[in-house]
Design a protein around this nucleic acid. Structure first.
Lengths: 315, 315
DNA sequence: TAGAATCTCTGACTATAGTCAGAGAGTGGA
DNA sequence: TCCACTCTCTGACTATAGTCAGAGATTCTA
């Protein structure tokens, strides 16, 4: 990785953390401890369970409780037992609390405006476009890839969503039971492998391999959550699966797909897959692709371990 | 200003502050109070006067002193009187302190790498390019414009730099005494106005007007510090001066310049100035420009008051 | 050279953030 | 119905950040 890129990231972190972090905090605080302001904000218009607040703001339960007591004492919040579960408590904004939150909203808007105000129209456009790009790519870098059991709840979720999407997009619908590799367990090691893409703990994509002794490895069930598209998740999944196939001794990966999945087709093509004659009788397929793999490198598999280790807090 | 832009800035602030701010801090701290880590960093290889540390880190003098005592006790820093001024004390890293600082450096690098690691080469390029853009434009938004007396030290600094640059760039050199408006005081109100562009307290550009009863307003001494070019400072200065000219009743602004100042020429042209016949005998000029001004709007002058007010901390 | 100003330091504070152990109420499964 | 578990709360802590007033040494300036 080029030193210049690393230096750029560091410069950015410095500038932006200084400019935004500190200001944002000062600005939100309104003479109130920052923790309280954040809590107020996070409760939101519709109220929020205390346990959700705790996990979103990453607070110790004692600390969270204390913050709520303080907001309660200030008449901004009420806390009551949840309807569904007597253990859970739900925080709600009082009228004054809602007004206070709106004030925070206004201030956040004003702060954002102050970033744009001194710029010309062209600069503003460029700034917001670049911010969007940075945000998207930083989010993309948070996506982690891991091999999981195909029966893992996250894996099941992805497969369910994948099938539902095929059903919506195929004119004649889609019934997984009538497709090849109907049973996800066929992708369980050692016969195959199933990879999951996860963003902030939520599954956002998947893809599986099925190894064959006498035939190229088969790639199946590639899917990316619509909300996570454009982050390069599909491409990374594909690369991950290819490297796992290579590590397993495969020289070739092939797959079948359907012409209505235009994004997928484009991705396979740009990733070096070339269209071949049908090699199976998958009834939902009308395109078949194949790619010769380079021999495995020593550093496979490439699941993003670095990201994971960095995100854990030093003890 | 479009609501979508404001929303984008707010999204960006949230995402980035979370992702970078917190991580950065955790990462730098190394089991040490963050303030100490920052101080250690800021002292740098060559040592640093305490007063400079205080102003850079914006610390209370008592607090700064305490942090230094703590680093001293840990054997990372020595503090001794400055050679030049017995009141001033200079902090220097010990060998262990320097090693510690290098460790911080390594960790910052590792953190930056972890942002890039999960991305493809193309994504990395796009991310760093976008970061550069955001950084530059956020910096540009920090530039403040104010009218000052031409005798103000910052004004003198800019004029000195401007003359030095002309001297370097003109084949025959440049002697301010032999040019028109040799005395900066001619741009003092009410006969004229002198504007300064300031970035983080440092002057980075200037420009002046000289009003004439019977002739168009004359624009002189436009200069932008080379380190601050590309931030749109010149364009903003120009707009500011034009609006001040209009507010003063001028319908036309004109200026003379030299063909070797290509950036300036390009800027004048793109800002709506058109070349005219020589209207004075400035010996250093070989191009003359003129622009008809729109009638003054009610909100002039446009000196960036919003930025200023936002940057001051709420009491 | 006296007095003002500058720089740093110490002591005495306050506020905020955050941790930890344990109690009490409620839930769900064997 | 009992037991393990979940969720929240309280009390008792510690650590960090930050403020303020004033003292002592030094330097600048009139």
């Amino acid at each position: 990785m080029e030193a210049e890129m690393v230096a750029q990231v560091r410069r950015f972190n410095r500038t932006v953390a200084q400019r935004i972090g500190a200001l944002d905090d000062d600005y939100l605080a309104r003479g109130r401890p920052l923790g309280e302001a954040r809590m107020l904000w996070e409760i939101g218009e519709g109220g929020c369970d205390v346990r959700v607040l705790r996990s979103r703001l990453q607070l110790d339960s004692g600390y969270a409780s204390r913050l709520l007591r303080s907001l309660e004492a200030a008449g901004l919040v009420t806390v009551a037992a949840s309807d569904h579960d007597g253990r859970v408590r739900t925080a709600r904004l009082t009228e004054r609390g809602a007004a206070e939150r709106e004030e925070l909203d206004r201030r956040s808007d004003a702060l954002a405006r102050s970033f744009l105000a001194p710029l010309t129209a062209g600069q503003r456009r460029r700034l917001t476009a670049a911010m969007d790009e940075v945000e998207r790519l930083l989010t993309a870098a948070l996506v982690e890839l891991d091999a999981v059991d195909p029966a893992h709840p996250h894996a099941r979720h992805c497969l369910r969503e994948y099938f539902a999407e095929l059903h919506r997009r195929f004119d004649a619908g889609f019934d997984p039971a009538r497709s090849r590799l109907a049973d996800p367990a066929e992708m369980r090691p050692p016969a195959g492998v199933f990879c999951l893409a996860t963003l902030r703990g939520e599954p956002v994509g998947c893809g599986g391999l099925r190894f064959h002794d006498d035939a190229p490895t088969e790639l199946k069930r590639m899917w990316v959550d619509p909300a996570a598209r454009g982050l390069g998740v599909g491409r990374r999944l594909l690369a991950e699966l290819e490297s796992r196939a290579a590590a397993n001794g495969s020289r070739t990966v092939r797959l079948d797909t359907n012409g209505s999945l235009t994004e997928a087709l484009a991705m396979y093509r740009s990733a070096g897959y070339r269209e071949v004659e049908p090699f199976n009788d998958e009834q939902y397929a009308d395109h078949w692709f194949e790619k010769r793999l380079p021999p495995p490198t020593s550093t496979t598999p490439t699941a993003s371990t670095s990201t994971t280790s960095v995100r854990s807090r030093p003890g």
